[in-house]
Structure formats: structure tokens, C-alpha cells
């Protein structure tokens, strides 16, 4: 119960942060990506602001080793840069540039995003379902090479 409660709280603060920062507005995101148009620097401030609490949190996590609710903190992480990371991030970037939404803001703006927001989300879920097969395919190709 406590896990779900704090999880919902984190989701709520995350969503409000996306709303306050303007990241649920596609003109802001696309305005940042459009270096040949009327460039909007807001996204850099959002990313900079978000990195500060998290950089501190990782330092605290390294000392605590165990989360407040008891489970071990995820202190080790994958270090291998592979084809799936590069291809996947490039595909993600293409969709992000095209529509102006990434997964967090797509969810946060669902309440007022109308049919367009719902259509984007449904397509995103279809893409997510298709991902394991695409990953396996890349693995087969890179192993054969």
C-alpha cells in the first residue's frame, strides 16, 4: 500500500512538473528542436532543473544502499552501448520531433489532449508491444555480423 501511495505521489509531481514547465505543449518541445525557426530555450532549463535533485539523490542512494521502503537501491546499471540503444534512441527522436511528445508528457496531457492525444498514446502502445520482436531481430543481425 505504501509503495503504491508514494508511486502515485511521484507520478503526480512528475505530471505537474511537466505541465508547469510547458513540456506538455508540443510547440515548446518542437520550438526547442527547431534551431532554424524561432528557437525556444525552455527545454534546457527544464532538463537542467531536473538533473539537480536527481544528482543529489544518486549520491544519497550510494550511501544508503537500501530504499526507504526496504528494497535494495538500483545502484548498478548497464554500461554497454549497443545497436539497440542507438537505433532505438534515433527512432524515438524521429517520433518526438515529428509529434512533439515523449512518453511522460503524452500521459500527463491525456486529460486535455483530445482525440489527437489519445491517438498518439494508442500508437505509442502499439509500438511498445512491437518492440521485443524488433529487439530480437537486431540481436540476430548483430550476432551474425
Amino acid at each position: 500500500m505504501a509503495r503504491s501511495l508514494f508511486s502515485a505521489l511521484a507520478g503526480a509531481i512528475f505530471g505537474l512538473g511537466l505541465l508547469v514547465s510547458g513540456m506538455t505543449d508540443t510547440t515548446r518541445v518542437q520550438g526547442w528542436l527547431d534551431v532554424f525557426g524561432d528557437w525556444d530555450p525552455t527545454l534546457a532549463f527544464v532538463m537542467g532543473g531536473a538533473l539537480i535533485p536527481m544528482a543529489i539523490a544518486w549520491r544519497v542512494a550510494a550511501r544508503r544502499r537500501v530504499a526507504v521502503l526496504g528494497n535494495p537501491l538500483p545502484l548498478t546499471h548497464e554500461r554497454v552501448v549497443d545497436a539497440k540503444l542507438v537505433i532505438g534512441s534515433s527512432l524515438f527522436g524521429a517520433g518526438w520531433g515529428l509529434a512533439g511528445l515523449c512518453p511522460g508528457p503524452a500521459l500527463a496531457s491525456l486529460g486535455w489532449g483530445g482525440w489527437g492525444g489519445l491517438l498518439f498514446l494508442l500508437a505509442m502502445l502499439v509500438g511498445m508491444v512491437a518492440a521485443p520482436a524488433a529487439k530480437a531481430r537486431i540481436d540476430r543481425i548483430t550476432q551474425a555480423a
Partner: peptide, 26 residues
Amino acid sequence: DWLWGLLGGLMIGGAAALYLLVNGRV
């Protein structure tokens, strides 16, 4: 605009910090 961006960013990072330190998740 940049101030709202910074404030929202701090909230996003704060939420991620809460999720990490309390729930132990990324």
C-alpha cells in the same frame, strides 16, 4: 518562461528522487 521551465524541471527531478529513494526504482 525559463523560470517556469526551471521550476517544473525541479519538480520532475524531485519526483524522480522520491521514486528512487522511497520506492527504490528508476
